[in-house]
């Protein structure tokens, strides 16, 4: 993982109570509780409804943090990204779209195969074993739909 993302990283359970963030401060963010951390099987994505947005959430084995990106795949225009296989390619954490197999960086939302395409990413944190997602504020400049 690169330095800039770790500074901006969503927080693991250990430090979840006092998130330190650059840019917008924590109290400016509207956190929406989503589900318990236990509901996420490591390396298997789930889809969540945050307001009317469909968000794909991933917990990766060996990592405390939870990654959140837009569930809509910009190539197939279908809400499928939570159902892709996760892994790493050239050191980047990625999910592969189950429809046309493009890979999206879980931290930045950018598409590895097509630099012009990306998906929105969301900040997350874990508070008392529950996953919360920052609504109304996205971490990347996603090219969602």
């Amino acid at each position: 993982m690169n330095a800039s993302s770790s500074a901006n990283a969503p927080c693991g359970p250990e430090e979840g109570e006092t998130p330190s963030l650059q840019g917008p401060t924590a109290d400016m963010i509207d956190w929406t509780p989503v589900c318990s951390l236990d509901a996420l099987i490591p390396d298997v994505g789930v889809r969540a409804l945050v307001g009317e947005e469909q968000v794909a959430l991933f917990r990766l084995s060996g990592l405390g943090e939870v990654f959140a990106i837009d569930a809509f795949d910009p190539f197939s225009k279908a809400p499928v990204l939570s159902r892709g296989i996760v892994g790493d390619l050239n050191g980047q954490l990625v999910v592969a779209s189950p429809i046309f197999k493009q890979h999206f960086n879980l931290e930045t939302g950018s598409c590895l195969e097509d630099a012009a395409m990306s998906v929105r990413t969301y900040q997350t944190r874990v508070v008392a074993g529950r996953v919360e997602i920052a609504s109304g504020l996205s971490r990347g400049n996603g090219e969602g739909r």
Binding site: I41, D43, S76, A78, R83, G84, V86, I99
Partner: peptide
């Protein structure tokens, strides 16, 4: 089996065939 869940592509994971609209 849960230990294999992360390995399966979505068709094997949900035991059905994903179509173009998900």
């Amino acid at each position: 089996r849960p230990k294999h869940a992360p390995l399966q592509d979505t068709n094997d994971h949900f035991l059905a065939n994903m179509q173009k609209n998900g």
